[in-house]
Simulated assay, not measured.
Amino acid sequence: MTAWIVLPVSLSAFSITGIWIVYAMAVMNHHVCPVENWSYNVTCTEEMPRPGFPKTCCTIQDIPLISKCGSFPPESCLFSLIGNVGAFMVIMVCLLRYAQVIEHSHHCWLNTSALVSGCTNAVGLVMVGNFQVDHAKSLHYVGAGVAFPAGLLFVCLQCVLTYRVAVTALDYWMAHCRVALAIGAMISLVFSGVFFIHESFVLQHAAAICEWVFTVDILVFYGTFTYEFGSVTHDTVLAGLQHVYQQHHLHLHHHHHGSGIVLGPGARPSALGTGSKGLKSPGGSSTSTHLNCTPESIAML
């Protein structure tokens, strides 16, 4: 087991706990109405806030969307912190998962696409966390429009990759669980979008609930990477870095010479992505069988 198993668990626990604390603060500060409230009014007269109690008169501006919960201080400060720290941990998880799949000789466009979509999700989270909806609406909606679809794409691609690298029955059970989470995320995101565009109070409230379900679902999905990260070692990271380094030099070689890689006398093609090797369960805790990383394996002109 490695210390990396703490990363996905921390991402899920920190983010889920944090957004619910933000929600509780917003309710207690009368910035939104509680989730269990389904009664809304067109307008409300000014009411005296009762400390420790939620609002009794709610308008459409008080619907507890996640973004609305983090619009005003002091909860907006915590909301920004969660967005920034969560985005950093998302990028770390995506990079480690990318390297781990590379290590298992499964380099493909799906893995690269998953890395790009995960990092795009992180960028959207930063925008959502730092541009509050009531103060920078356009930028906030751009961030949400980037973060939500990118997050959904990431989990869908990871479902496919989980099946591709699965070895044991437990690996396949993990893949099945991730498919269930991905389906739940897709359904909740679609319903959230459909309900959000209506002006009905009830549908707007339903959109908020679907948004909460989607967010928690995605965060739980990230937490499932604890299963694989028990086998991550420094060689896993090196495998990912080596691949990025090779791809960079391939790009430079094509750009300057237009002829790709030329193998020198006696050189052997890289084993990356094409060579066969014994695989262990991606969720195992023993040391992985690593890639051939000897520098003489490729001669580049």
Rank of each mutant, 00 (worst) to 15 (best):
L161Y: 00
G124C: 09
L152N: 09
R164W: 08
V128K: 05
A87E: 07
V123Y: 12
V101I: 09
L125Y: 11
C108N: 14
I91W: 05
A87H: 06
L95K: 02
M92D: 10
L96Y: 04
M89F: 15
L139S: 12
Y141I: 15
A150F: 06
L95R: 05
M127W: 09
N111H: 05
D134A: 14
F88T: 11
R97H: 01
N111E: 01
I82E: 09
T162K: 03
G145Q: 06
M92S: 14
V160S: 10
T168L: 11
S117C: 13
H140L: 06
H106G: 07
A122P: 01
L152V: 07
Q158N: 15
M127D: 03
G151N: 00
F88N: 11
T168Y: 08
L161V: 02
L96R: 04
C156T: 00
C108Q: 03
A144W: 06
F154A: 08
C156F: 08
A144L: 09
A147F: 11
A122I: 08
Y98M: 00
G145W: 00
C156Y: 01
A99I: 05
G129A: 05
A122L: 05
G143H: 04
T168E: 13
A144C: 03
N111M: 00
V167M: 10
L95Q: 05
L110Y: 07
G151Q: 07
A99M: 05
L125V: 12
L115M: 04
V160L: 14
T162Y: 01
M89R: 06
L81V: 15
I102P: 01
C119F: 13
S105Y: 11
R164E: 12
V116N: 02
V128C: 08
L139T: 15
M127S: 07
A136S: 14
V155T: 11
S117I: 03
Q158T: 11
C108V: 00
T120C: 14
G143I: 03
N84E: 13
G129K: 07
S138C: 13
H107N: 13
A166I: 06
L161M: 03
Q158S: 06
V133C: 10
V142C: 14
H106T: 05
S117T: 15
N111T: 02
V165E: 07
C119S: 14
A99S: 11
I82S: 07
G124R: 02
L110F: 09
H135T: 15
V101E: 02
I82C: 12
M127P: 01
L96I: 13
Q132I: 08
M89P: 02
G129R: 08
G118A: 03
S105Q: 14
M89W: 12
L152M: 10
V155N: 09
V167W: 09
T112H: 04
R97I: 06
S113H: 01
E103Q: 13
M92T: 12
A136E: 13
A99T: 02
S105G: 06
F88G: 13
T162A: 15
